[in-house]
């Protein structure tokens, strides 16, 4: 398996804050990696460290095989980035913005023109290429910034909260565009977000970070298994203490909880649910609907954060 980036105990301190705390991770090439965390978790600082824009206080990182301390120029030449701000020149047209970064990437003139046309057409803004970017909506600017990041076909792309501040429609459209472009280009993507639905939709691999510490790393399914098993949601009536007690006594059941008129049964592992339903009916419950599902990434995230809080309390 080829590795796109690797960090070993990567740490960055600011005056009174440890922004990134002994971060160790490996991301294989060709995947969309979601770096999840609340605001101020250290996501943006991690990207700055990986691009060689900041020096680590301790530890090391390699991006595309280059050391971030000594070969940052090579890293920046082979990556595309949409950072915290879109970085677009609002006094220039959309076309000129891409032309500038195409020249920086030293794309030959003909290839540059063709590539700009291809990306802007794909994103549906080719007809508006001569307009000043300052007159565009935030969603269109984000699209243009994504196009800029992909312009020189980099093998690795950093996207720092690309849908932040967009309305739900624009955010969904941009997510679709990113997914389509990334699938077509075959690049590795390092995407930071605090939007868990976004990570669920786009990412094959996710890392959860909080206060600079990596809490978990794996595929969304792996994290679900780690933090809790599959769930069964039962809608109906008559969920008495007897019913709940019988369910809890079953070895395949991890926990049982009621939410409004719903019963949430978390299982130890994916198993057949028919015996559990029979048990409930025999105990007097009336069942209208049974939904089998997985814990959402949001629930996984909250579980991880809760565990981290408990660990920190225990450490004093």
């Amino acid at each position: 398996m080829e590795i796109a980036l690797r960090t070993e105990s990567l740490t960055r301190d600011f005056a009174n804050v440890r922004a990134v705390d002994a971060l160790t991770l490996e991301i294989p090439r060709g995947v969309v990696f979601g770096f999840l965390g609340p605001n101020g978790a250290g996501k943006t600082t991690t990207i700055r460290l990986l691009l060689g824009l900041l020096e680590p206080t301790a530890g090391r990182a390699e991006v595309l095989g280059y050391d971030t301390r000594t070969q940052a120029d090579a890293i920046r030449a082979q990556t595309g980035a949409l950072l915290e701000h879109n970085g677009l020149y609002e006094r220039l047209t959309a076309e000129d913005n891409l032309e500038f970064y195409g020249r920086i990437a030293r794309l030959p003139a003909a290839e540059r023109q063709a590539r700009i046309r291809e990306l802007l057409t794909h994103l549906g803004v080719w007809e508006r290429r001569k307009e000043l970017v300052g007159t565009w909506s935030r969603g269109m600017k984000q699209k243009l910034a994504v196009a800029r990041a992909l312009l020189h076909r980099p093998p690795l792309i950093f996207l720092d909260e690309p849908t932040a501040g967009l309305d739900p429609v624009a955010a969904a459209a941009l997510r679709d565009d990113i997914a389509a472009l990334v699938a077509r280009e075959g690049a590795t993507v390092f995407l930071t977000t605090h939007n868990l639905a976004e990570a669920e939709k786009l990412c094959a691999l996710v890392g959860v970070i909080r206060q600079g510490r990596l809490l978990a790393l794996g595929s969304p399914d792996t994290l679900r298994v780690r933090t809790g098993g599959p769930q069964v949601e039962v809608v109906g009536r008559g969920f008495t203490e007897t019913v709940l007690a019988r369910l809890r006594a079953r070895p395949e059941v991890a926990s049982v909880a009621t939410q409004n008129s719903h019963l949430i049964i978390t299982l130890q592992a994916p198993v057949e649910t028919a015996p559990l339903i029979s048990l409930m009916v025999n105990a007097g419950a009336e069942i209208e609907e049974v939904r089998k599902g997985k814990e959402s990434l949001e629930e996984v995230f909250l579980t991880l954060v809760g565990e981290e809080d408990e660990r920190m309390k225990a450490e004093g």
Binding site: L51, R76, A77, L83, E84, G87, A105
Partner: peptide, 9 residues
């Protein structure tokens, strides 16, 4: 726009 410029090659 500065950070994006500095993140270029």
């Amino acid at each position: 726009t500065l950070e994006t410029l500095l993140a270029s090659r």
